[in-house]
């Protein structure tokens, strides 16, 4: 709570800076229009005009907020101009991909922890794969799956899945390894089987790591779903809104899509954060 005032101050500063930038970047167009019609504009008139342009270079914050309101609350959610409709298209691909990716990631992490061969053979590749831009594969996956007859939700979900897969693998391997030697020795003195050690020691100990890597994974999944929507030629989804906006110069639409993506990301990460707090509090692991 003590950071509420500082955060509010910085946010206010950012919004103020945004308005100033909007005036600076849009005034060229305003002045040009005025010169053509031979009118002299006063400073306040220029400022007022830069806030209300149809296609500004930088839409002012209230224009973006209005567009967001207009496209989420005022439109019917089945309408193709509704951001709720497009947001849901992206969200469904994100969630499906995230589920597949994190499930496979946990499974691979389990096998890496239990097999020395997997650990030495696969783990270096999993780590190295995080340093390469796998997102570059997205257009190819979309087009190939399209030629095989798969389109719509599944290809985007696959991109989301492999983006969330590797962070979960790497996080969960360190999670399953986090119990100390002392605790492992204790399990051995109880004559616990590998199965029991896994469920009673490794899984509970790995939960903090699980939630942290799920947060990274779901943010990556959302990026994957958005980028996956680009090569399909802007049919539906937030990525399609971005692309269509950039084709037709609808800057306000781009910003509104960008903000709904940000809100979506915040909600997804926030949901996992809440699950994390509740679960860890029940287990007595919260700080």
């Amino acid at each position: 709570m003590r950071s509420l005032l500082p955060v509010a101050t910085v946010s206010m500063f950012v919004i103020a800076l945004w308005y100033v930038m909007a005036v600076v970047m849009n005034s060229a167009w305003t002045l040009d229009q005025a010169k053509r019609s031979g009118v002299e504009l006063s400073f306040s008139e220029i400022v007022f005009d830069t806030m209300e342009q149809e296609r500004p270079r930088l839409p002012s914050p209230h224009q973006v907020a209005l567009e967001l309101w207009d496209a989420t609350i005022d439109k019917k959610i089945t309408s193709r101009r509704s951001l709720v409709f497009h947001g849901w298209v992206t969200l469904s691909a994100t969630l499906l991909g995230f589920l597949i990716g994190s499930l496979l990631g946990v499974l691979l992490a389990v096998s890496i922890v239990h097999s020395r061969v997997m650990d030495m053979g696969v783990m270096p590749w999993a780590i190295a794969s995080q340093t390469i831009p796998i997102l570059a594969l997205a257009p190819m996956i979309i087009v190939i799956l399209n030629s095989v007859g798969l389109s719509g939700l599944i290809p985007k979900a696959i991109i989301s899945a492999y983006l969330s897969f590797f962070p979960v693998v790497v996080g969960m391997v360190s999670g399953f390894r986090s119990p100390e030697f002392m605790q492992q020795d204790l399990m051995r003195t109880y004559n616990a089987t590998a199965w029991q050690v896994f469920w009673k020691l490794r899984v509970p100990a790995s939960l903090p790591f699980l939630f942290t890597s799920l947060k990274i994974g779901i943010a990556a999944s959302l990026v994957g779903a958005i980028v996956g929507e680009l090569p399909t030629g802007a049919v539906a989804g937030l990525g399609a809104r971005l692309l269509a906006g950039s084709y037709y110069g609808q800057t306000t639409q781009i910003w509104a899509a960008l903000f709904s993506a940000a809100i979506l990301a915040a909600m997804l990460v926030g949901t996992i954060g809440m699950l994390q707090r509740v679960t860890l509090a029940r287990m007595g692991m919260d700080r």
Binding site: I226, L242, L258, A261, A265, V269
Partner: peptide, 11 residues
């Protein structure tokens, strides 16, 4: 840092 900033590319 957690937001999909790649989306700013068209802008």
């Amino acid at each position: 840092a957690a937001l999909p900033i790649v989306g700013t590319a068209p802008i």
